[in-house]
Design a protein around this nucleic acid. Sequence first.
RNA 1: GGACUUGUAGCUUAAUUGGAUAGAGCACCUGACUACGGAUCAGGAGGUUGGGGGUUCGAGUCCCUCCAAGUUCACCA
Length: 599
Amino acid sequence: MKIENLIQSGVISALKKLYSFEPEKNTVQLQNTRKDFIGDITLVVFPFLKYSKKRPEDTADEIGIYLEENIDEVKSYNVVKGFLNLEIADKYFISEVLNAWNNEYFGTEITSENQQELAMVEYSSPNTNKPLHLGHIRNNLLGFSISEILKANNYKVVKTNIVNDRGIHICKSMLAWQKWGNMETPETTGKKGDHLVGELYVEFNKHYKAETEELMKKGLTQKEAEDQAPSIQEARELLRKWESGDPEVVELWKTMNGWVYKGFDNTYKRLGVDFDKIYYESDTYLIGKEEVLRGLKEGIFYQKEDGSVWADLTNEGLDHKLLLRSDGTSVYMTQDIGTAKMRFNEYEIDKMIYVVGNEQNYHFQVLAILLNKLGYAWGKGLHHFSYGMVELPSGKMKSREGTVVDADELMDGMVKVAREMAQELGKLDSLSNEEAEKTYEMIALGALKYFILKVDPKKNMLFNPEESIDFNGNTGPFIQYTHARIKSVLRKASEKKLELNKEFDVYPGDITFKEKELLKRITLFPYVVKESGTNYSPAIIANYCYELAKEFNQFYHDHPILAESNEPLRNLRLLLSATVGKIIKTGMNLLGIEVPERM
RNA sequence: GGACUUGUAGCUUAAUUGGAUAGAGCACCUGACUACGGAUCAGGAGGUUGGGGGUUCGAGUCCCUCCAAGUUCACCA
């Protein structure tokens, strides 16, 4: 039985006996004892004072005596103000860690498959008119990681990507190619397809902006000018042709999207993210349109004189929302309605999770309401995993102005730094070229991923391209290094035939403070995995991995392992090392980060 | 203007969801390998948790009110 449960019921019977009072389970507040005090688990006694009618110190004292007498694992206790600190016997933690080591899936156990709920996680969801940038990286890493974390929390997960392959933005790039593209292709230029299309998008905006300014000089307001500029008119014409199936336009659209997909695949692969099911908006938007028209017929929505269709959300405290343009074409919301319907038809989804930036909080609030109005009970159950923006020192990234940190360039830069650093330290000289390159890549991506995932997803984060991402301190490479070092010790142990004996008995002697800290930290891992799942926060796992690695390094520094002559103690330290190594690997993998055997 | 979110050391951030003296990393200063890996470890300095009020035995955390920043309220996605 877990010590927390043991103590909890011990406290309940203590209160019954001492004060004839039976508390609710959740008023028994247990927490890990702070490091500056002696003890392992702390009970907060303030809530019980009105029943004990005694000073906090005396109340804690009485409960402490009871627990010490009645629970074997409670070795001693001390009282500081209203806090009852309980010291737990070493052997309890050692046997827990032994279990952790012997359990292959420690912290990530799952029940039988038919007991699992299905979670669909939508993430990435790029537009096909520009390459991926740092903002997308945060999205992809969060989406992939939360999927892994949900799996570890007993969910069956379908990772999905909805590709924004249609709409006015693509038409802008298409128009730019027709007018100023010089028939360039990825093959003729050697450029990555998504980058080529992205350049065209910027090109469009350059012309568009110039035209707008020209019109404004002639006295038009900004809004009028933006509406009447020839470029945007032509782009709209392309969109209309596309929606009516014009073969030439559709052909160009297919070709250019093809370029982009090839580029994206490349980037996804390098980032280490993948998808089980990909949806394309060109396949789902018509379903959305049907749903909106059905809603119109049933009086859920209304039509204006110009033919546009709207939803009145004023009863919900929101505005009127456009669902179909006056020319009959669909908008973002229409498409998302269609996509949602399609997904729920194809899968028995228990939980639908959208990994989308917080700038779309309003959108998802509206989507849930609209689906509900359309009669889908699951509409209310959607979960918008809303994360903060990545900002540059100069402010927000803007694709159309080209002020973005490109995903591919960023990764290249990180690998370069990792390579230089490793070569300077002479770390990987014994490895083959190929293995060394693989390791640089692993470290570079570890640094990047950890940098992004350690931050609470809800918060906006700042990225300064001038200062490269660190490799020392609270970083991915720090944790990777700890893992590599543990592996090195274990390799040497096996060379010396000091292999970890799985049957090893609980160490009989006294252990040091640091050893106990490590033991305790290890037993927390399953709770951390659970917490990161319920809070949708990979950051919780990232921070735990850091604390664990840090504590191991401190332990490692002044505790000999292989050189320890006391065999049971040596075994305990090997057990600690091996278990920490295993948890680091598991934890980092939940973040989508690989850990090297040597670095 | 309405709605929502966020303000913690110079910078990047944590705080067991209301608990003890707010904990780390970077940068800065000082120290530690004849050792199982120095991408490490030990130490120093750095804080009125945006300001003010309130609730509570107890507030970075909850409530009110100012201040600041961001997002959104588009026939863009």
